[in-house]
């Protein structure tokens, strides 16, 4: 069953067009990677999907319902959450308060206790740090908190914008393993990454963006074997 469909998307900022006729789909239960180098349009794609910016043209369909014009908070209520670029935590709030804010929508608030246990089981460090101010944590912990906060909204589809950015390789592996556990718990994942190898390793399918256009798409295992992908993104 299809959870997300993006059709003929043109988008950008002011008079700068970044995305050109982007088409994507994500099936329920998948991990889908959105790959590409810096400036290829990954962040813009996720921002349009999450409703942080309006597209110039095109259509976004979530669970069979068109959401192109819907404001971001209504998309969260429908089960679509974004772990944004740069984490975007509430720095003067504690870890616990950040997580509580994650469960802001009425649907999520009902499951607050349950969700907390779930997030703490995925990221045990957050339980230890629950009274610490988010702004004082290390980059890796902040990334976990940002993912945890997004999970608190009980998303059916979680979009992550470069969760590996600025993190040590060991932490990247840890976070990616947790993404696989989240998938097992029923969360569909759309993962924008520059760390192409790690992303291809855990995803089922992948899209490659180049200067705002999807240039390659297919099963991750096949992409990992393609010469053009290996040369351009895996340095081989």
């Amino acid at each position: 069953m299809r959870i997300l469909e993006v059709n003929d998307l043109d988008a950008g900022y002011e008079d700068l067009q970044v995305l050109w006729e982007v088409n994507m789909r994500v099936e329920r239960g998948e991990i889908v990677s959105l790959l590409g180098s810096n400036g290829a349009g990954k962040t813009t794609t996720l921002r349009v999907i999450a409703g942080l910016i309006r597209p110039f043209r095109g259509k976004i369909v979530l669970k069979g319902r068109e959401i192109t014009g819907l404001p971001s908070h209504q998309r969260v209520a429908l089960g679509l959450s974004l772990v944004p670029e740069g984490r975007q935590l509430f720095p003067m709030m504690t870890v616990m308060e950040n997580l509580e804010m994650g469960a802001y929508t009425p649907r999520a608030r009902e499951k607050l206790e349950d969700s907390l246990e779930w997030v703490f089981s995925l990221f045990p460090i957050l339980r230890e740090r629950r009274n610490q101010l988010a702004g004082t944590m290390s980059g890796g912990e902040q990334q976990m908190l940002s993912i945890g906060r997004a999970l608190m909204s009980r998303p059916e589809l979680l979009a992550l914008d470069e969760p590996s950015m600025g993190l040590a390789p060991k932490l990247v592996i840890e976070i990616f393993r947790t993404l696989e556990r989240m998938r097992k718990d029923g969360v569909t994942i759309l993962l924008a990454e520059q760390n192409v190898k790690a992303a291809l390793d855990i995803s089922d399918r992948a899209y490659v963006l180049e200067t705002g256009r999807i240039v390659i798409e297919g099963a991750s295992s096949e992409l990992a074997l393609r010469d053009d992908v290996r040369r351009a993104y895996l340095g081989m």
């Binding site: 971001s72 908070h73 969260v76 959450s81 974004l82 944004p84 935590l89 509430f90 804010m101």
Partner: peptide, 10 residues
């Protein structure tokens, strides 16, 4: 504290 963070939590 963070308007973008506020939007993504709904």
């Amino acid at each position: 504290q963070n308007p973008i963070g506020a939007r993504v939590v709904g």
